[in-house]
């Protein structure tokens, strides 16, 4: 979809629904929303709906960032501690690598 060909109400509608969709544990949707509407929210000449769009973009970006920070922290913890967790580590693993603890 080309945002430049879209009416301002339509843009707002889209941005709002991307933001709401992100609550269904879809951080990537928030990330897409934040990047996609960034220009609309901050650089283009002002229009009525821009303020709301900006809010959605900021919160989508924040949400995505928190998600990714959390994921990164978990991945690092899991990868470095899975072996020491022993049985618990195995029980939360889907595929256990061969040949290493």
């Amino acid at each position: 979809m080309d945002l430049s060909k879209m009416s301002n109400e339509r843009k707002l509608h889209l941005c709002k629904w991307y933001f709401r969709g992100g609550f269904a544990l879809l951080p990537f949707l928030w990330a897409v929303n934040a990047v996609w509407f960034a220009q609309e929210a901050f650089t283009v000449p002002q229009y009525d709906e821009q303020k709301q769009i900006r809010r959605y973009v900021i919160f989508s970006g924040l949400g995505a960032f928190v998600w990714f920070a959390g994921l990164l922290a978990w991945i690092i913890t899991f990868q470095t501690h899975r072996a020491t967790w022993g049985e618990f580590g195995d029980s939360i693993s889907w595929i256990i690598p061969t040949g290493i603890p």
Binding site: E87, T98, G99
Partner: peptide, 27 residues
Amino acid sequence: SFMFSAVDSETCIRRSIPRLNFNPPLY
């Protein structure tokens, strides 16, 4: 001569037991 198992007997036998609906490789 790459070996699949690691740690000790308890660990490698536990890992070979099927969990959920997933068949793990034999260790």
